[in-house]
Simulated scan of single mutants.
Amino acid sequence: MSLLSFLTYCVIATFTPGPTNIAILSIAHRVRIKEAFRYMFGATAAFGMLLAVSALFNQVMVAALPKIIVVMQIIGSLYMLYLAYQVSTMKLSGDADTQAATFKSGYMMQFVNPKIWLFTMTVIPGYVMPYYHSAAALSLFVVVITVIGFMAFMTWALFGMVFKQFLQRHQKATNIVLALLLVYSAIEVSGLLR
């Protein structure tokens, strides 16, 4: 397992702007940090739950159809290339729509966030399952990825204004670097270099 590629994918997928991160940025600007943290705890709880369900689902699929892992690696690679394209062409929106800064709204946001669905369904089979199969190992990776996600949410809440200004000033260069890192991750997951 390429730990560098795994961490690169996790950090890029969780730290780049997406619906949840932009909502947290907006909430952190409009309300007190206490409310932003309630929202983040809800988003983190749902993120961890979706990762756990993904790990369980993919483990069942691999047991039933052993060759499915190759298909999931290909799907994961294609998704990462798509994400690289999206990152390379994205524009940082102004402010996200104002949302209630509650645990429930943060939790529910993850279920309508396609970025989270695609990430949770590709990270476990693409990076973890080719090398680790035990429930303990999968659980550990779910916890590690959830912590990375929470750190991304905290970053957007605490330093959101700094990142927003930086991304607006250096948007093109930042997007290109992030897109190239995602292409690297896609190549690693595809198994083409093995």
Rank of each mutant, 00 (worst) to 15 (best):
Y131I: 08
L193D: 03
F141N: 01
A43Q: 00
A46L: 03
P114C: 05
K67M: 14
I145C: 06
I74F: 12
F163Q: 01
N58H: 15
R38C: 09
A43L: 03
I69W: 11
M40E: 07
G76P: 09
L178Y: 05
P125C: 11
A46S: 14
M40P: 03
I33A: 12
P125R: 09
K164D: 04
L50G: 03
T44W: 10
Y85K: 13
L3V: 15
F37H: 14
I148R: 10
H29W: 06
A136F: 13
F111T: 03
S190K: 05
Q99H: 04
V189Q: 15
L138R: 01
V53Y: 11
N113G: 06
G160Q: 09
V53H: 03
A64W: 10
I33Y: 12
R32Y: 05
L83N: 04
A157T: 07
M154C: 15
K34R: 10
A13I: 02
T120F: 10
Y85D: 07
G18K: 11
V60G: 05
F119Q: 06
M40G: 06
A28P: 11
F103E: 06
I116T: 14
A45P: 08
A135K: 10
T44I: 03
D97A: 13
L4S: 14
V31D: 15
M161R: 09
D95P: 08
I33M: 12
G191R: 07
L4E: 13
G18R: 04
L7C: 11
F153D: 02
F159E: 03
V162Y: 11
K172R: 15
V162E: 12
H29C: 10
